[in-house]
């Protein structure tokens, strides 16, 4: 065959070889099929551990009770027992070492998430104690009159 035909062929083969060599260095060792299916399980294995190591932010009531036993006891005996502390106080990660004070959600809109009357028939929201935003103590903070840890009580 003529030289001008072979030249691009050598170039193509050379490129393939270069790519194959580069691949050896660029693709991590743990990349491959980890599981039954090539379609679904082809991945970098160490990424699973990376996701497992993602930092946890919401630590749960068990973490709060260590210092705030009084509040947790009141909450647990109240109609609000099912509500997590961190729903109103934000994620506890770093508290109290780095984050000395957690925010306290006092906004009226926060209470209205559950207690705004929507007048939906046969609906869980309608079974909760609810108020009409437009007529009930317009724009006032709910926590001024209702103690959130035990809504049956008045705030001190």
């Amino acid at each position: 065959m003529k030289w001008h035909v072979l030249r691009p062929l050598w170039l193509a083969i050379g490129l393939v070889v270069v790519i194959l060599i580069a691949r050896q260095f660029l693709v991590p060792d743990d990349f491959g099929v980890h599981g039954e299916s090539f379609t679904y399980n082809f991945h970098r294995l160490s990424n699973v551990q990376e996701w497992k190591d993602f930092p946890v932010k919401h630590l749960g009531r068990e973490s709060c009770v260590e210092c705030h036993e009084e509040n947790v006891t009141v909450l647990n005996a109240s109609p609000h027992a099912a509500i997590e502390c961190e729903n109103c106080h934000g994620p506890a990660v770093g508290h109290p070492d780095d984050v000395e004070f957690l925010p306290i959600e006092r906004a009226r809109e926060h209470c209205l998430r559950c207690h705004a009357s929507l007048d939906y028939p046969n609906h869980a929201r309608s079974e909760l104690p609810n108020v009409r935003d437009r007529t009930h103590k317009r724009r006032r903070e709910c926590v001024k009159c209702h103690y959130p840890h035990d809504p049956r009580e008045k705030p001190e």
Binding site: H58, E86, N87, R113, C114, L118, H123, A124, R125, L128
Partner: peptide, 11 residues
């Protein structure tokens, strides 16, 4: 059971 409080989305 969902009352649409949206606290799951926030969390």
């Amino acid at each position: 059971k969902c009352v649409g409080c949206g606290l799951c989305v926030k969390a």
